[in-house]
Nucleic acid binder design. Structure first.
Lengths: 148, 148
DNA sequence: GTCAATTCGGACTAATTTTGTCCGATACAA
DNA sequence: TTGTATCGGACAAAATTAGTCCGAATTGAC
């Protein structure tokens, strides 16, 4: 299981939610249009996010989804794993039947270390961090355009 | 593009080659049987490794494949990328058409950092390291069995 | 109470990628 | 010349990813 569009869309969707004031709700339709994500697909993804307790769903007219936690307290890894399940690298498959696949062979061990590498980056970055970075990028971009 | 069985098999195949004396050749058939990798699939993988210059192919009877470089000078990343092509995380797809996908948006940037995390681990480990680790694992395993 | 808006949840389909297989061509040794 | 190997690309099967669809449930407004 790897990082796929589903996970990516999940992060983009939550970024959208988190940009509003705390507790603000947004409809799938809105988010889907603004972030250019297929509506039904996004709906499914938000269901996973709801199950994981990252967002709360409000049904009926005037309903939508709302963030449950503070964006500073949500790591990108959390979001991605909520959508995709545990992200795991290629399980190795050595000749020996001894390799129970948890540090049983050298290749397994290496993959685990590699995994920790990516998880580190994704855990350290919170949803809020991501949004701030984006804002910074946007403003420097706007500045460039203004000058150009 | 991600790390798949093909890459894993490539590493296992080269580990097999590297365990012999320097320059030793091995046939696909051999490697395939001993490492329990489907023969035709392994053949295709070794073709990629040959193209990348990691192994040399000798055709005809008595032929096979032989390592070109010293196992200490081959990183696991090299092997995997030889087989799978550049490993790249989910390219992000922000709403703005500005996102040229090279550090153009925050999510891209994050994915790049995560990528560097795994590449670090895979670059630092050489084929020789891997084999040594495996030997260590095997011997402690044998010891356990002897006592048990 | 009815209607319209909205999520829920799961079945379904399409597209893509992964994981192979197969076979004729080519190269080499004996 | 014959037997053994790789070469290289076309082909096929399986798995995964990406996305659609639809009926049901829930809620707010009139």
């Amino acid at each position: 299981m790897q990082i796929t569009r589903a996970g990516e869309y999940g992060v983009l969707g939550l970024m959208h939610l988190a940009r509003g004031h705390p507790g603000q709700r947004a409809m799938i339709d809105q988010v889907s249009r603004q972030e250019r994500i297929p509506k039904s697909f996004l709906a499914k993804i938000f269901q996973s996010l709801a199950k994981a307790g990252l967002v709360r769903s409000i049904r009926g007219s005037g309903g939508g989804f709302a963030l449950v936690k503070d964006p500073a307290d949500i790591s990108v890894l959390e979001i991605i794993e909520a959508v995709e399940g545990r992200i795991v690298f290629q399980r190795c498959k050595l000749a020996q039947p001894d390799c129970e696949h948890v540090g049983g062979c050298a290749l397994c061990g290496l993959f685990e270390r590699a995994q920790d590498g990516i998880k580190g980056a994704l855990t350290q970055t919170s949803l809020r961090d991501l949004i701030r970075q984006q804002e910074r990028i946007n403003s420097t971009l706007a500045e460039k355009r203004g000058r150009g």
